[in-house]
Design a protein around this nucleic acid. Sequence first.
DNA 1: AAAAGTATGTTGTATCTACAACCAAAGGAG
DNA 2: CTCCTTTGGTTGTAGATACAACATACTTTT
Lengths: 222, 222
Amino acid sequence: MKEYFKILTKCPLFFQFNEAMIAAFLEESDAKLQTYNKGAALVLHGDASQQIGILLSGIAQIRQTDYEGNSVLLHQILPGALFGEAFTCADQPFTVSVLAAKDSAVLWIDYRKIQFDFQNQSQTAAYVVSNLLRFLAKKNIFFTERIRHLSKRSLREKIISYLSQQSVLQNSLSFSIPLNRQELADYLAADRSALSAVLSKLQNEGVLTFHKNHFTLTKSAD
Amino acid sequence: MKEYFKILTKCPLFFQFNEAMIAAFLEESDAKLQTYNKGAALVLHGDASQQIGILLSGIAQIRQTDYEGNSVLLHQILPGALFGEAFTCADQPFTVSVLAAKDSAVLWIDYRKIQFDFQNQSQTAAYVVSNLLRFLAKKNIFFTERIRHLSKRSLREKIISYLSQQSVLQNSLSFSIPLNRQELADYLAADRSALSAVLSKLQNEGVLTFHKNHFTLTKSAD
DNA sequence: AAAAGTATGTTGTATCTACAACCAAAGGAG
DNA sequence: CTCCTTTGGTTGTAGATACAACATACTTTT
């Protein structure tokens, strides 16, 4: 563990910490070191983790399976970086997987430990902090997803990206969305009439059908 | 104050709180109620606030001045919603202003109070929580800005939006950016060669000049 | 039920951009 | 210095989309 302290001082979680403080915290919070072979999963899609990971060595990749079944690399995690903090603080199941791209070592911090350690002192203040973390984390997830959609190169892809996510979220190929056309156009940063046109085209092509805010994705043959 | 408790139970900061807990917290954290007339500023661009605001009544608008000097509405805040939490937790000066669109009442929570209230108990755990909040909040700000750029309808506007932000950040019309062309293209969700083409066009039009990663915006005549 | 208002779909056009293919400059490695 | 790699600019083209203007359907009001 000693050899990793230099990396930990660079971790945002330990901003302005010296090594003694880090050591005290790791002891106190019962942090766990774990190693993974290349290719192993640190977190799997669907996991409801209560841990925050700090990568100590190796490389980790945040990946997600898109609507065509491809594993898409969303982000590379290098030593010293946090991962999983958003889903863990938001108390939401992971919608991404984290895989070791090389042999890797991870320090797992139990979120419940840092959350509840000081609740004796001021119960309500601790809950407020916990809520604030949850709020910021949920916003983070929301923003990340929106950026994912906005990053698609064509409106068609933006739409499919958004609708696929909704389909997964609602666990059905048939679902309603909480946005009207203008709101969806704004969310995807597109023109409303262009959005309507592309939706019609997708319907003609048999990719999906829709009525008002209710959409049904057609299972593609591949 | 009593009349606002119903709204506060809907505030994400008090998720799963009952009224007694909220009352205890407000007492403990010395929260301040303040009213504003329509048009008044709750927060001004450049402020380094240590407060988190909860809107109790009225409507507030998050606004930002764009590169043409227009005040752009970024977000509407309705009663029960938080505002300012990202800049406050990130410990960064506000890059937006918050204005009362109607006569409004705001409950101000002092972030230092909720941050340090429980530090006697476990100094390091409290710092970790504080760092975690800072980290999530900074990410939030970063994402928000990226979404602002990505939301522009044309690549030209995306580029100008990004470069203007950099110019403001670095407080100069002449500045270097931390991204190479491919990275900038990825950040703005565009094709690299298309990015190069638009940059060249902007240069021909006299909007800006650039050399590698260094850009100089031309002060427009309006 | 008629009227007014709102939301969504359609069409045409000018513009923009992704994409591919290529060229040029800069920087490193040997 | 030369070769090779990386980075960035240019060009041509096909296709996509913003924008405007209009048409249609659905809602709400009166």
